[in-house]
Amino acid sequence: MHVKANFSYDPSDDPYVPCRELGLSFQKGDILHVTSQDDPNWWQAYRDGHEDQKPLAGLIPGKNI
């Protein structure tokens, strides 16, 4: 699934992200490729076009956050 970011996000500013090192920062308007929605609070995703630059997907706020 692909989603367009409606806001900018920086995991280093988020006290609730489970692991800041795995958080994925993005800017408003970025297209994110969501690879897992298993956790309703924290989805796994890549910025579209960056799949090969990071070995693991990053965490982004899910629909319930």
Results as ranks from 00 to 15, higher is better:
Ala5Ser: 01
Asn6Tyr: 01
Asn6Ile: 10
Asn6Gly: 15
Ser8His: 06
Ser8Arg: 02
Ser8Val: 08
Ser8Glu: 05
Ser8Gln: 02
Tyr9Ser: 07
Tyr9Val: 11
Tyr9Pro: 05
Tyr9Asn: 08
Tyr9Met: 09
Asp10Trp: 10
Asp10Phe: 06
Asp10His: 10
Asp10Gln: 13
Pro11Asp: 01
Pro11Ile: 12
Ser12Phe: 10
Ser12Pro: 00
Asp13Cys: 04
Asp14Thr: 09
Asp14Gln: 05
Asp14Tyr: 02
Asp14Lys: 05
Asp14His: 03
Pro15Met: 02
Tyr16Asp: 13
Tyr16Ala: 06
Pro18Cys: 13
Pro18Tyr: 13
Pro18Thr: 15
Pro18Asp: 13
Pro18Glu: 14
Pro18His: 14
Glu21Ala: 12
Leu22Thr: 03
Leu22Val: 06
Leu22Arg: 14
Gly23Asp: 02
Gly23Val: 12
Gly23Arg: 03
Leu24Asn: 09
Ser25Val: 01
Ser25Ala: 13
Ser25Thr: 10
Ser25Gly: 09
Phe26Ser: 00
Phe26Thr: 00
Phe26Trp: 09
Gln27Gly: 02
Gln27Phe: 09
Gln27Thr: 15
Gln27Ser: 13
Gln27Leu: 07
Lys28Gly: 03
Lys28Ser: 07
Lys28Thr: 15
Gly29Gln: 10
Gly29Cys: 14
Asp30Pro: 08
Asp30Val: 04
Asp30Gly: 07
Asp30Met: 05
Ile31Leu: 12
Ile31Cys: 05
Ile31Pro: 04
Leu32Asn: 02
Leu32Ser: 03
Leu32Gly: 00
Leu32Tyr: 01
His33Gly: 02
His33Tyr: 11
Val34Leu: 08
Val34Asp: 02
Val34Gly: 05
Val34Trp: 01
Val34Met: 06
Val34Ser: 04
Thr35Tyr: 07
Thr35Glu: 14
Thr35Lys: 10
Thr35Gly: 09
Ser36Tyr: 03
Ser36Leu: 05
Gln37Ser: 10
Gln37Val: 07
Gln37Ile: 11
Gln37Phe: 06
Asp38His: 11
Asp39Trp: 06
Asp39Ile: 03
Asp39Cys: 10
Asp39Pro: 03
Pro40Arg: 12
Asn41Ser: 13
Asn41Tyr: 13
Trp43Ala: 03
Trp43Pro: 07
Trp43Cys: 10
Trp43Tyr: 15
Trp43Ser: 06
Gln44Ala: 07
Gln44Thr: 02
Gln44Met: 06
Gln44Ser: 11
Ala45Arg: 02
Ala45Gln: 05
Ala45Glu: 04
Ala45Asp: 01
Tyr46Gln: 01
Tyr46Gly: 01
Tyr46Thr: 00
Tyr46Glu: 00
Arg47Thr: 15
Asp48Met: 08
Asp48Cys: 11
Asp48Leu: 08
Gly49Asp: 05
Gly49Ala: 09
His50Thr: 15
His50Gln: 14
His50Leu: 09
His50Trp: 11
His50Asn: 14
Glu51Thr: 08
Asp52Val: 08
Asp52Ala: 13
Gln53Trp: 04
Lys54His: 12
Lys54Tyr: 13
Lys54Asn: 08
Pro55Gln: 14
Pro55Gly: 03
Pro55Leu: 14
Pro55Val: 14
Pro55Ala: 15
